[in-house]
Simulated assay, not measured.
Amino acid sequence: MNAHASLRRRILVTLGVIVLFRLGQSLPAPHVTVRAPEADHPLRWILDLATGGGLSTLPVFAFGVLPCLAARPVLRALTILIPRPAALRAEGEAGARALLRYQRWLTVVLGLLGAIAVVVFRGLDFLGGAVAVACLAAGAAVVLRLTEVITDRGFGDGVRILLLTQVLAVLPAGFPRLYETKGWAAIAVVAVVTLSITVLTIVFAQAQRRIPVQYAKRMIGVRAYGGSPSYIPLRFPQSNSPAVLAAVLLSLPVLWPGVDWLRDEGNPGRIAIYFVLVCLFAFLRAVGTMDIDQVTRDLVRVGGFVPGIRPGPWTADYIGYVRHRIIGVGALCSGVVALIPAVGLALLDVSPRVPFAGVTLLVVLVFLVSVALDTVRQIESLRQRERYEPFLR
């Protein structure tokens, strides 16, 4: 009964916050004249996905979770450039709390700067502009609090859940426009692309290579500890950054002067180079995600070893050999996944008119799948914990 009540309470909290979030994205801000969105603008649908359509109509939550998303990489960059945040990162839990506080302030500041930019662009008078800036900045602060409520009392990461909400609120509106311009063939291509990326993302997210580990028995008093088999899970770290970085590099006119066909996302040569760059960037990103020497030292410290492999550098060489093979296959699979939307949208002749269309579709689909998987894992973990809690008392 307690398990069901806890699950029901978390689900209701999450749904309630989502309803409040969408209500704030429908409530118009004061002293702001609502403009009709420009349907043919090539960047409109990307901005709608990032803000839930807020920049088109400027509601109270005009920026959606965009300030929360932007605050994390900005704070990470400041941690590298400024000594104080870097020192806080090394202070453990107390430093993490201080960095979280800085991230909250940075989110509000980014919302304030965005509100000022919107007011200047709209050309409002001083009084109306001041009211609109205060309203939009306060809306960014409220959205930040809503994300924290979901993270603490609901399911999943609050920023990811609300981002998923605004994406799902905007995405279906694009299908009627696509049908009007391209017909049923376009719907079929998008359905195949969506299904393919979803299935492959789930398969790659769940796949892992388990290296068996055996622990030596140790006598502590009259009891024997250890001796049970275990394993080291090796996964390929999934990320959308290789695809985004490859698309940006191919689209920068400074790097490719006079080569206009590289900026056409439907060009076959450009698609081939894009595939190679995605594989390369995915491989380079995955290489530095695991310290094999540290894993080997930890195994030696706790008395663990890989059966048939001598401890020490021989174990490190074996784990590195297996891991590099996994990274190679994973990088190739990342290139294939990134290639699916690029080829599909090239067949529809959408990419030349909408920049970064294939990358945006890939990022959105992978994000939706990852959020769904994380939420399902958290629900299952909570159910298991509630089920076995009476036996652990």
Results as ranks from 00 to 15, higher is better:
residue 314 W to I: 04
residue 356 F to Q: 07
residue 302 V to G: 04
residue 355 P to A: 07
residue 310 R to E: 14
residue 371 V to L: 04
residue 375 T to S: 12
residue 307 P to C: 00
residue 335 G to I: 05
residue 371 V to S: 01
residue 322 V to M: 13
residue 384 Q to E: 15
residue 366 V to W: 01
residue 312 G to F: 00
residue 313 P to D: 12
residue 348 L to A: 07
residue 315 T to F: 09
residue 335 G to F: 00
residue 366 V to H: 05
residue 296 T to H: 06
residue 299 L to A: 05
residue 320 G to N: 15
residue 351 S to D: 02
residue 302 V to K: 09
residue 360 T to R: 00
residue 302 V to D: 15
residue 371 V to A: 02
residue 336 V to D: 07
residue 379 I to A: 15
residue 297 R to A: 13
residue 359 V to S: 11
residue 310 R to L: 13
residue 369 V to A: 06
residue 342 A to M: 08
residue 377 R to Q: 12
residue 345 L to I: 08
residue 318 Y to M: 04
residue 388 Y to H: 15
residue 379 I to S: 06
residue 352 P to I: 00
residue 333 C to I: 14
residue 298 D to S: 14
residue 356 F to M: 14
residue 327 I to K: 02
residue 385 R to V: 09
residue 382 L to N: 15
residue 388 Y to K: 12
residue 378 Q to T: 11
residue 388 Y to E: 14
residue 302 V to E: 06
residue 325 R to Y: 06
residue 319 I to D: 01
residue 300 V to W: 07
residue 296 T to K: 03
residue 301 R to T: 13
residue 303 G to L: 04
residue 369 V to L: 05
residue 370 S to H: 13
residue 384 Q to P: 03
residue 383 R to V: 03
residue 336 V to W: 09
residue 314 W to K: 10
residue 333 C to A: 15
residue 335 G to L: 03
residue 365 L to T: 15
residue 383 R to S: 11
residue 363 V to Y: 01
residue 311 P to E: 12
residue 323 R to H: 06
residue 287 V to W: 01
residue 299 L to I: 03
residue 288 G to C: 03
residue 338 A to N: 01
residue 337 V to C: 08
residue 339 L to F: 13
residue 320 G to Q: 15
residue 375 T to G: 14
residue 328 G to T: 13
residue 327 I to G: 02
residue 337 V to K: 09
residue 354 V to W: 07
residue 354 V to P: 03
residue 350 V to I: 15
residue 372 A to I: 10
residue 314 W to F: 10
residue 344 G to T: 11
residue 326 I to Q: 03
residue 326 I to N: 11
residue 302 V to R: 06
residue 355 P to G: 09
residue 355 P to N: 01
residue 387 R to M: 05
residue 328 G to H: 03
residue 353 R to C: 02
residue 325 R to E: 09
residue 300 V to N: 12
residue 316 A to C: 06
residue 377 R to V: 11
residue 348 L to Q: 09
residue 376 V to R: 15
residue 312 G to C: 07
residue 288 G to L: 02
residue 298 D to P: 05
residue 285 R to M: 13
residue 374 D to V: 04
residue 380 E to I: 12
residue 321 Y to E: 11
residue 362 L to V: 07
residue 324 H to K: 11
residue 288 G to R: 09
residue 296 T to L: 02
residue 359 V to Y: 14
residue 299 L to F: 06
residue 311 P to D: 13
residue 373 L to P: 01
residue 319 I to A: 07
residue 339 L to H: 07
residue 380 E to L: 15
residue 325 R to Q: 12
residue 385 R to I: 10
residue 361 L to I: 12
residue 355 P to V: 11
residue 379 I to R: 14
residue 364 V to K: 05
residue 367 F to Q: 11
residue 357 A to P: 05
residue 352 P to N: 00
residue 324 H to A: 10
residue 362 L to Q: 10
residue 337 V to W: 05
residue 332 L to T: 10
residue 329 V to E: 13
residue 298 D to C: 06
residue 328 G to E: 08
residue 383 R to E: 05
residue 347 L to E: 10
residue 306 V to D: 00
residue 383 R to L: 05
residue 283 F to P: 03
residue 320 G to H: 14
residue 339 L to S: 15
residue 284 L to Y: 08
residue 336 V to G: 09
residue 334 S to D: 04
residue 340 I to H: 09
residue 329 V to F: 12
residue 304 G to A: 06
residue 336 V to H: 05
residue 384 Q to W: 11
residue 291 D to L: 00
residue 374 D to K: 09
residue 319 I to C: 04
